[in-house]
Design a protein around this nucleic acid. Structure first.
Lengths: 251, 251
DNA sequence: CGGAACGTTGAGCATAATCAACGACTGTGG
DNA sequence: CCACAGTCGTTGATTATGCTCAACGTTCCG
């Protein structure tokens, strides 16, 4: 494993001369969901001048632990995982980031976490130092970053409960349930179609289990007619949301 | 369990008339370690007018999950635990807070976490809405809060690795090791005295284990002459830091 | 066609939970 | 002063849960 400086390869799409509302930002698909949503078109010029778009291929490592973090970015499309790893290779996914999320280690020297692309991902990347300066100038930007960081901290704490205290069935059921709530699509027959965005192995790394255990619990939920799925498909159908919630959140 | 509004009992020590550098803040023992360290004596008046000191007895619940969070506070002395709980009583400690730390849920409506005093604790408490307004006015205060929130998030993520992937011995050894690093006192014979700030039961809740398992691993470390402790004592002596670190962080 | 990646399933095992008993210490009340 | 209950920590026996190791089917791609 050869370490590479984080995002050091970002060079293209300079926009140095823009002064007014920058065209490529105004039409950006995460204009209203990313941190940029806290800034007016006019103010956005300050960020636009710093930002460079960059495509990351699935599986690519963006940031190695121990590297100085010299960049940060908004996710324009795609998905990233944040992982923590032990010396012998045991791995824990400590966060998943999607379209509109912000990635990067601000105001901290050392990064103990690896960032890897789950799918091909488009980033709008900024030099860290420059981004921190922009934060000084635009209180609304800093406020939104603070809010999102607080929200991530709350998520992390809730997930500690899962990792520390829930059994395998509760973990898997909870994972499916949460996805169903967030990205489930009604199929017209009263069921919810859920596209699991990650492989069984990654679900295992996310839940602190092994692949085999995740598979067995999925089979168990299928046998109980709570969910349904076919071999080789990443998706699954939630047949009985109530029973699923019962497992996750018993009365 | 009767829910009580967070910190609603805070009434004493008003300081309404102060305009200059507030006396009780200047001499506060966490003046230089709490969020207040980001503010000049002059600016501190804005917070001082809002703050009320409040003593919480060991075991008292400060905040129930589901309550609206109407207060926040700096910890002047003592210690708090943040816990997440399942319906059947399984509990996970998701954070420990000490002197100088900030406690409270800003910019988020629902709190899913319980705050309980581990020891008798003195708080300097603020109405949440007022504190948020002060944040608007003092960018340095907001910046320090952001930095500390980012730091807490990093801690939480590292702890997810422990809860998801480490075995019982690694968890307990890691707990002792970290405390030794942070609050260990050299005893003059080349060993480190560590005062464990919480009971076995709370260590178990912190590490996602049972009391018995924590006890067994402590005994195991003692049998290996890595640590030493006597029955009934909260403290322990680290006899072999290297071996301890070896368990935590094998090469 | 062959190999790789992914998911499922089974058998056996190891780890930590559970259940139970006990000792040390504390505080209470007679 | 002692009896007593209560809390805390330790230890032992047993069990259950999830891990490890192994085999196999499917899909995808060269």
């Amino acid at each position: 494993m050869v370490s590479q400086t984080a995002l050091s390869f970002v060079r293209d799409n300079a926009d140095k001369s823009s002064v007014g509302p920058p065209e490529r930002c105004v039409h950006c698909k995460v204009r209203e969901t990313s941190l940029c949503s806290s800034m007016s078109n006019r103010d956005l010029a300050a960020l636009s001048g710093l930002g460079r778009t960059r495509r990351i291929l699935a599986g690519q490592v963006i940031n190695w632990p121990g590297d100085a973090s010299t960049s940060c970015a908004n996710i324009v499309s795609g998905a990233l995982k944040l992982t923590a790893t032990l010396a012998d290779g045991r791995e824990q996914i400590v966060g998943l980031l999607f379209q509109g999320d912000f990635v990067g280690q601000l105001f901290a020297e050392e990064m103990s976490i690896t960032v890897v692309a789950l799918t091909d991902t488009d980033l709008c990347s900024y030099p860290r130092a420059g981004f921190e300066l922009v934060l000084d100038t635009f209180p609304k930007l800093e406020r939104l970053l603070l809010k999102r960081t607080i929200s991530s901290l709350n998520d992390a704490r809730v997930r500690m409960l899962t990792l520390g205290r829930k059994n395998a069935l509760e973990r898997v059921a909870g994972f499916v349930f949460e996805l169903a709530q967030r990205i489930g699509q009604a199929d017209g027959k009263g069921n919810l179609d859920v596209l699991l965005p990650i492989s069984r192995g990654e679900i295992a790394d996310f839940l602190g289990l092994t692949i085999e255990t995740v598979s067995r619990q999925m089979t168990r939920l299928k046998a109980a007619a709570i969910i349904d799925f076919a071999r080789g498909e990443r998706g699954c159908k939630v047949l009985d949301v109530n029973q699923l919630e019962m497992i996750v959140n018993p009365i």
